[in-house]
């Protein structure tokens, strides 16, 4: 088994920082499946199979005091040696390497490298069993954190410097059929504007335009970006995608025209009202589309009290 390649001085500072910042208790599995000393190895074999695990700590009835651990290796040896009916106590490993829940994750990583066990029981200050940690737990936790960081970096890279007169700009990446995140970009735009005490009517018009354009990216396009720009007297929302393009823009603008299929309609889209809605709430509205290349829809909404330039 190769070692986890992040425990070195050459690792990026972010990763080093991460494995010291995260504690074993943030990463471990807290619902530990245990067995008792008198549990037959055969039953532990079944538990492993049923729960898909490779090690079972042996504890008192409350699952707190740890006496040993039975691993898949112990079970294989028991099957070989013909003593699978014996109680766990006779054959469990007693020389336990354990971790403490307050230790930094770095300890768990170096233990996994050093001791070549697949898992370590985790004890609290009172020496009670509170969790178990495997390389899988660690990989998942690290991936989650690294993903968050990459997302932050991406945001920073794609936010171009603002133009003069621009007060805020956000670029959201929108993926095809990503209904899980559908509406998050427009919700983000709305939130940003709410902090600026915009009047509710204008806020609603902007939200409708942003939402309809975001949904069209998800439902009809190959994916693209939703860009929001706030200037002194106006808000601009631009949806730009990578295809497939709209063959007949005039027709697409008709109320009720939709190419959405049954399953899209079952998700609540396809009234053919999105583009007309967005146009109705906008002061300026343009669509540029080329089949095979993509579509750019731009909606501008003037802010009240400001005459548009």
């Amino acid at each position: 088994m190769s070692t986890i390649p992040i425990n070195t001085q050459e690792s990026p500072p972010f990763l080093l920082d991460l494995i010291y910042r995260l504690k074993v208790k943030d990463v471990m599995t807290k619902e530990v499946i245990t067995a008792q000393r008198e549990t037959p190895l055969r039953q532990i074999q079944y538990i492993m199979k049923e729960k898909g695990i490779t090690g079972v700590p042996i504890t008192d009835d409350e699952g707190k005091r740890l006496f040993g651990i039975v691993s898949m290796d112990d079970i294989i040896r028991a099957l070989d040696g013909g003593y699978i009916q014996d109680p766990a106590e006779r054959w469990m490993s007693r020389n336990l390497i354990v971790l403490e829940d307050d230790m930094p994750l770095q300890f768990a990583i170096s233990y996994l490298d050093k001791f070549r066990y697949g898992r370590f029981p985790v004890l609290n200050k009172d020496r009670e069993l509170v969790g178990i940690i495997t390389s899988r737990d660690i990989i998942i936790a690290l991936l989650v954190e690294v993903n968050k960081e990459v997302e932050k970096l991406e945001q920073r890279i794609v936010q171009p410097p603002s133009k003069p007169g621009e007060e805020a700009r956000r670029i959201y990446h929108v993926r095809k059929y990503d209904f899980e995140n559908a509406g998050k970009a427009s919700a983000g735009i709305k939130k940003l504007l709410m902090e600026r005490n915009l009047d509710p009517k204008t806020l609603r018009r902007i939200s409708v335009a942003a939402y309809e354009l975001e949904m069209n990216l998800i439902v009809h396009s190959e994916g693209g970006t939703l860009t929001f720009r706030l200037e002194k007297d106006r808000v601009e929302i631009e949806a730009k995608d990578r295809g497939p393009g709209i063959p007949d823009v005039e027709q697409a603008m008709e109320e009720g025209f939709s190419t959405a299929n049954e399953w899209i309609r079952s998700l609540g889209f396809g009234a053919g009202m999105g583009l007309p809605n967005a146009k109705r709430v906008s002061n300026e509205f343009t669509i540029d589309s080329k089949v095979g290349e993509g579509t750019t829809v731009r909606a501008v909404i003037y802010l009240p009290g400001q005459s548009a330039s």
Binding site: F179, A182, G183, S186, A187, K190, P200, R204, S207, V208, Y211, L267, G268, F269
Partner: peptide
Amino acid sequence: LNSEQVIRTADIVG
């Protein structure tokens, strides 16, 4: 329709 989009829509239109 029992999806999140209903709530998002409700939020937008008030």
